[in-house]
């Protein structure tokens, strides 16, 4: 247990908070990858996010925690504009910048944004194709035709997702033959194949057993050296294990954002403390 003696962090830090715990040896100032500033979001007339501001550092894991319906998944889906698919919804105020680019500016290429900001869904959703074709899909839609380049990317991303050794002999079989945990790692591999900078994960372990969950968590730890990872989770122990920073949401508001160790050991807000200690949620 790390004891933190400094006064509680402000609710909306203007610079990324200094990392503690897992990332404590990093001394240089962290580069901001995703900058959410004063975002209001509504589904129709139903406002679900209220004035959210937080800055997620590059090559680190940020976890969103909070009770169901608190808006954490909505915010996650704003970052690669998946909410465009929902009729009548949208950001009403504020802006989100990814690597300095306003992702809601009118001239922005959404396809390019989604290539740079990959996503892994709560329910693993491999395509009903072969394992190989699942990984190759993102490259094919991007217009890559060269077989050797696709082969290379398939192997590389399967290795990154720690799945290569398990599936290398059956790349041509249907992805639905894989176990639940393997399917989810396939989805991670598929997201990595297009070369994103950010990977968004929406409760990636919610349907998995503890062993498969442990593998994914291990994978997240390995991936954060290269990718900026944002993970939504219901599992507080998981947030504590995998993340460097934690944001706590409640009823569409960001209650607290800071280094994970601090949030879990010395939360600045009463609500955060109540949630983490299991008094509600």
């Amino acid at each position: 247990m790390v004891t933190v003696m400094e006064p509680p962090q402000t609710v909306r830090p203007q610079t990324p908070p200094e990392p503690l715990g897992p990332a404590a040896n990093q001394t240089e100032k962290l580069q901001v990858m995703i900058d959410v500033s004063e975002v209001d979001f509504s589904y129709g007339d139903n406002k679900v996010l209220h004035n959210i501001s937080l800055q997620m550092p590059a090559r680190a894991v940020t976890a969103f925690i909070g009770p169901s319906g608190c808006g954490k998944t909505t915010l996650l889906r704003c970052i690669n504009r998946m909410n465009d698919l929902v009729d009548g919804s949208g950001i009403r105020n504020g802006a989100i910048h990814v690597d300095g680019v306003d992702i809601n500016s009118p001239g922005l290429d959404v396809v390019d944004l989604r290539r740079r900001v990959g996503m892994v869904f709560q329910k693993s959703n491999p395509f009903p194709k072969s394992i190989y074709e699942n990984i190759a899909y993102g490259l094919r839609v991007a217009g890559v035709k060269k077989r050797s380049r696709i082969d290379e990317a398939v192997e590389k991303s399967l290795r990154s997702a720690a799945l290569w050794d398990e599936v290398k002999d059956r790349l041509e079989t249907n992805a639905y033959g894989l176990s639940g945990g393997q399917q989810q790692r396939l989805c991670i591999a598929r997201a990595l194949a297009v070369g994103p900078e950010v990977v968004l994960m929406d409760e990636p372990c919610s349907a998995l057993d503890p062993i498969a969950t442990a593998k994914i968590e291990e994978l997240i730890q390995a991936l954060k050296t290269q990718y900026t990872i944002v993970i939504v989770t219901h599992n507080m122990q998981q947030a504590g294990r995998v993340s460097d920073f934690t944001a706590f949401f409640y009823l569409g508001k960001l209650i607290e954002f800071g280094p994970t160790v601090k949030i879990f050991t010395n939360p600045g807000e009463k609500q955060t403390e109540d949630y983490i200690t299991g008094r509600f949620g």
């Binding site: 690669n80 396809v111 869904f121 329910k123 395509f127 839609v141 997201a191």
Partner: peptide, 26 residues
């Protein structure tokens, strides 16, 4: 399933690519 559409769009496919390769065949 909606997940197939979202999965495809999240990989940087356009909506027409998604329909042609990942919805219509099924």
């Amino acid at each position: 399933p909606k997940g197939l559409r979202e999965g495809s769009l999240a990989l940087g496919a356009t909506s027409w690519q998604t329909i042609r390769k990942n919805v219509l065949p099924y």
